[in-house]
Amino acid sequence: MKIIRTKAELRALTESWRRAGDSIGVVPTMGALHAGHLSLVERACAENDRVIVTLFVNPKQFNNPEDLAKYPRTEDSDAAKLTPYGADVLYVPDGAQMYPEGFATTISVTGVSEGLCGGARPGHFDGVATVVTKLFLQCDADRAYFGEKDYQQLQVVTRLCEDLDLNTEIVGCPTIREEDGLAMSSRNLRLGAGPRKTAPMIAQVLEDAARVIARGGHVEQTIDKAKKALLSAGFDSIDYLELRSVPDLKLMTSADRPSRLFLAAWLDGVRLIDNVFVADLASVGKSKDRPLEPA
């Protein structure tokens, strides 16, 4: 695997791949790689002739400078983790490569970016949309791979490519979880030992609430009960716990069409997100999304 740090060197390489007729997949990351990222790399390698993994901690998608400063930087260990998977390039641009002096363009996606993390983190998805557009163009990617844990981000990037006629297919991949159910995230590394034992309650509470709602349970009451369970367990606060339709992410009060429960909660000073699929009993098994089977 080659490490490349400039877009000029990357473009020279991708042009040679194109001349050879190779397809190109890209896995955009901010580093601190875990099994979730590596599952994306594995799929990209299976579906493309060439694969680029990008590593760039994007300042434009952080609305909290302290959060940006604390984000783990682990390039050496990330490169070592990638070695067995067969990626061709680890692209590690610096700020000057991505946002040179005089940079003045922001890409904004409305609709699916509104509410949820878009409401809790103003400007976040503008930063995501801007950086992924640049990465897709720099990598000349045929396909880009994103996890469903960041489901809103997945829809923002999908909408972006459709609206701007970008030649990059967005491939959504299942959330990868720890053995105790916690959705894998680079932020999990910042949890203390005690809070780390509490964190899997996110998945447990979401799955319980999804089953109740899928059986016709009252959405607002079920969500209130889930919030209370998390706060009683020791979570600091909850940014949101909402039922949204998929893929358009409209706020819902009943599961009368395919939907997901979305959660963002704070624990030990760390913001954790997750989501699970919900379907009313009539639509279970009919949606393109994977239904959460009632117990």
Rank of each mutant, 00 (worst) to 15 (best):
R244H: 13
A214E: 08
R271V: 10
R257H: 14
F56I: 04
T130C: 11
Q155C: 15
A44C: 15
D22W: 09
V53A: 01
D140C: 05
L82V: 03
G118W: 04
T83P: 00
L13F: 02
V53I: 07
A46V: 00
T158S: 15
R190S: 07
A79N: 01
N58P: 05
A229I: 11
V112D: 05
M184D: 09
C139I: 05
D150Y: 10
Q97Y: 03
E242Y: 02
G119T: 12
I273S: 04
R257E: 13
L13C: 02
R177L: 08
M1F: 04
S254G: 00
V26G: 02
G217I: 04
D94G: 15
S186N: 05
V131M: 12
P247C: 09
L82H: 04
G123W: 14
L135R: 00
K2V: 01
T130Y: 12
A229E: 13
A96M: 04
D88V: 01
A69N: 00
H37I: 03
A20K: 14
S287Q: 10
D236S: 14
D49C: 07
E220Q: 13
R196D: 09
T29D: 07
A120W: 05
F262G: 08
V89W: 06
V41G: 10
V131A: 13
K227N: 11
A255R: 11
W266N: 14
D274F: 06
A229S: 12
G25E: 05
F125K: 11
Y85T: 01
P291Q: 12
I213M: 09
V41K: 10
H124L: 10
S283I: 12
N58V: 02
M98P: 07
V57T: 06
V278W: 04
A199C: 08
T106Q: 15
K286W: 00
K70G: 03
V156A: 01
T6P: 03
D163C: 01
T74C: 11
G102C: 07
R73Y: 00
R187T: 09
A8E: 14
K134L: 12
D236G: 08
F56E: 05
L10D: 08
S113E: 08
A295G: 01
S283G: 09
E47M: 09
R260G: 08
M184Q: 15
E207L: 14
A32I: 06
G25H: 07
E148W: 04
A44M: 11
V270L: 03
